[in-house]
Design a protein around this nucleic acid. Structure first.
Length: 424
RNA sequence: GGAGAAAUGGCAGAGUGGUCGAAUGCGGUAGUCUUGAAAACUAUUGUACCGCAAGGUACCGGGGGUUCGAAUCCCUCUUUCUCCGCCA
């Protein structure tokens, strides 16, 4: 969430910039400022009374010590009546704090100046294309048919044991998953991201820290009996490692990578674009997460985009990089670049990575701060993350683009990890 | 799952009803000394909110209660440790 102070100091700017995200903040900003005034006033009243009670209590102590019990008992009555006054104020104050917080949480992150206006995916800015488009023979098959033909991914079996969107990978299909995970982790490690293997379930505080809660509650699987959530991405546990942490400025940059299974309910997205591996409830992804000094977070974003581009290039997939428009960006992001690869048989661009700078938006929820050398006040860090990479759509594109009459060719960079160079 | 013990500042650890935001040690920072470093010595060293400031308020695992007053007493939840049981 945005910090209250920032909203107070940049009121008009906040309202203007959020228009890019098609969000009308004028009213909510107004109520926030008003609510905060009321909060301050109430807290001041409360603090004054508490200060009074404290001083009376100290007097009582002294009076008892010096044996003046009568005066002490008089003072006691006074203190009791003050306590009555403070009780109502305390309730009012905590109510105000809850209301203020509920309002703050409703404001999305401010988009970076470079974010184009727009309503949806069609308005994203195509900033770069790379790789070669494969020339497939007539009768090229989409990956769901290839998966069946070579018996490497079984969608029906997944339905039987769990449900739609939970595929079963078999034989070389399973090995290919493992190979991709290892390849990505190794590449990320080489780029300076140190590896984390996080829990796949998180508590409520973590869901809140990265912004999945409260607004995207329906997107996560919830284990009701223990009140835990299955992670939709490793971003959640990894970023939350740094919740309530005050870093030293010289600790930057902090760079982590993590493989995890990801779980998404994808409620409401049935029907379109969900065939085969295009959209799943459970999938594998390797994530990169970075914490950086506010002055350097955009340089880090560029570096991360470059790194992800390198991965896609090594896999020899045709790709494009999009700068997301205001309407297509996530609630929490300030600037996002999406990577899409081309799956030549279904003739579709598939999103395989999303690299974002959240600036201090997540950090404010996480209370992730840092101290500058010689400065007393901690300030909010910047957080960034990106997929490097999400597996299913990479697999979809690999299968489709690399199909030959002899079988499916494995890209060179994966052969050592797989132990085979063709799926036949 | 059963029984018992515990949770205090970056860490270790004192504090069982009043001047305790909290002793002491270690660590960190600044300084003195030194050619430099180490050692020694001196000072300083939590977070948030209100306030121009002085200062005030809150926080001793979380929540609630008793009391004029709670780190300290009571209830409750969570977590950790020890023992027993079960188990990859």
């Amino acid at each position: 969430m945005l910090s209250l102070k920032f909203i107070q100091e940049n009121k008009q700017d906040v309202i203007e910039k959020l228009k890019i995200k098609n969000f009308d903040a004028s009213q909510i900003v107004e109520s926030i400022l008003q609510k905060d005034e009321e909060r301050k006033k109430t807290q001041k009243e409360q603090d004054d009374i508490l200060a009074h009670i404290n001083s009376v209590s100290r007097e009582i102590g002294d009076l008892f010590k010096s044996g003046k019990a009568d005066e002490a008992n008089q003072a006691k009555e006074k203190s009791t009546s003050l306590k009555q006054d403070v009780k109502g104020l305390t309730e009012k104050l905590s109510q105000l704090e809850i209301e203020l917080h509920d309002l703050l949480v409703q404001i999305p992150n401010i988009p970076h100046v470079s974010v184009p206006a727009g309503k949806g995916a069609e308005d994203n800015e195509n900033i770069k294309e790379g790789g070669e488009m494969p020339q497939l023979a007539n009768g090229a098959e989409p990956h769901w048919d290839l998966a069946k033909k070579y018996d490497i991914i079984d969608f029906e079996l997944g339905v039987k044991i769990t449900g739609a969107g939970f595929p079963v990978y078999k034989g070389k299909g399973a090995k290919l998953q493992r190979a991709l995970i290892n390849f990505f982790l190794d590449e990320n490690e080489k780029a300076g991201f140190s590896e984390i293997m996080p829990p796949l379930v998180v508590n409520e505080a973590s869901g809140f820290g990265t912004g999945q809660l409260p607004d995207k509650e329906g997107q996560m699987y919830h284990v009701g009996i223990d009140n835990l959530y299955l992670i939709p991405t490793a971003e959640v546990p990894v970023t939350n490692l740094y919740r309530d942490v005050i870093l030293n400025a010289k600790d930057f940059p902090v760079k982590n990578t993590a493989y995890s299974a990801c779980f998404r309910r994808e409620a409401g997205s049935y029907g379109k674009d969900v065939r085969g591996l295009n959209r799943l409830h459970q999938f594998d992804k390797v994530e990169v997460v970075a914490l950086e000094h506010p002055d350097k977070s955009y340089a880090m974003l560029d570096a991360m985009v470059k790194h992800v581009e390198g991965l896609v290039q090594k896999l020899n997939l045709p790709y494009r990089i999009l700068r997301l428009c205001g309407g297509d960006m996530s609630f929490t992001s300030a600037l996002t670049f999406d990577f899409e690869v081309y799956a030549a048989a279904q003739k579709k661009w598939l999103e395989v990575s999303s690299v974002s700078n959240f600036e201090s938006y997540q950090a404010n929820r996480l209370k992730l701060r840092f101290k500058e050398e010689g400065q007393k006040k901690p300030q909010l860090a910047h957080t960034l993350n990106g997929s490097a990479l999400a597996l299913p759509r990479i697999v979809a594109a690999l299968l489709e683009n690399n199909q030959t009459p002899e079988g499916i060719k494995i890209p060179d960079c994966l052969v050592d990890f797989c132990g085979f160079d063709m799926i036949k």
